[in-house]
Write a protein that binds this DNA or RNA. Structure first.
Lengths: 178, 178
DNA sequence: ATTTGCATGTAATCTGTTACATGATTCA
DNA sequence: TGAATCATGTAACAGATTACATGCAAAT
């Protein structure tokens, strides 16, 4: 079967610019965080694998006096593979697992006051997260050019904000039914 | 650390009523599907584990002439454990991984026509899914009683519909920016 | 000098999916 | 009598997290 999404997440970033494993880790941490992420312990082995598969290569750079860092770049084969994946029609994914919705599902096992507190706690968390995302959005002075990489950033950030807005209004709706 | 969410998903269902592994599998397939799921290959071993931990027990029932099925029920210890988990304040989870959003993030690597097709394909999938969920909602003649298990069903189904509505309007927003 | 961040790796464990494997019951 | 569904399990593999492990560079 083989889904290997991490493979394509990495190839996609290296298709935008050359990076080290550490840079990739930072991209996952800050930019892609709204829809994908990986720890360095997953990234480094994957980079080795992609290199043996001939999809990426690296050259060593010296930072300071001795510190070696590996700057990775995508190969033509890698780019073709990536674009093939990107063009593939994406079948609807199974709904992502969410512990918070699971707890709501079971919330009738709680006393009314506890239950209300659960919804209010989730609500507060999403309000805060929404504000945080709105802050990030300010970095975009205006909508980036359609063909730029930043446009992708902009769209998914917008999507993350819409998601928080939806969660907030759903949780409010739940509270009003209690 | 130990998250063991499957453990609590199963305990929560057994807290509602006694069930076999097969019944649990069906619940995951139809009811919990909007936010949690598990295959039978994961459920059966987990049931054994929960029994050795003293959180559930089972008795054998005969179906037809010979077919043995194991009807599981939650123990007092299991119920306490479950309620403890349910009461715990749930920290905001990392955003769930979504391949579709990853593809949108990278969509500037495609030609404008291909890109537009990607958004339209995703849009059609979510429109269809939204209709499907609305069909399910019709099973509820009215809002179930707040204290019933069905009320949890109702809230998460509502949440699933809100999620599809959000995705549809976000994708339309993206298309309008292209 | 000390702390924070840069930089790279492996090992152990846990979680989840796909495949393998078997057999009974029910309904058309 | 054949197909669909009920019913239960294991094995192999893939994907992801946490912990272990090391050392340099830059800024205060």
């Amino acid at each position: 079967m083989a889904a290997r999404t991490l493979k394509y997440a990495i190839l996609g970033l290296l298709n935008q610019k050359n990076m080290t494993g550490y840079d990739l880790m930072k991209e996952f941490e800050f930019t892609l965080n709204e829809f994908w992420y990986a720890n360095h312990s997953q990234i480094y082995p994957e980079l080795k694998k992609l290199e043996t598969e001939g999809l990426i290569t690296h050259e060593v750079e010296i930072s300071g006096q001795v510190l070696e860092k590996k700057l990775y770049s995508i190969t033509d084969t890698g780019r073709e593979d990536f674009l093939g994946w990107l063009r593939e029609d994406q079948p609807l994914e199974p709904t992502p697992k969410e512990v918070s919705r699971l707890k709501i599902f079971y919330s009738s096992a709680l006393k009314p006051a506890e239950r209300k507190a659960m919804f209010e706690s989730q609500l507060a968390q999403h309000e805060e997260r929404r504000l945080h995302l709105m802050e990030n959005q300010k970095k975009f002075k205006k909508v980036p050019a359609k063909s730029s990489n930043e446009f992708g950033d902009y769209l998914v950030l917008l999507g993350a904000i819409r998601r928080e807005e939806m969660l907030i209004s759903w949780l409010q709706e739940c509270l009003s039914l209690l």
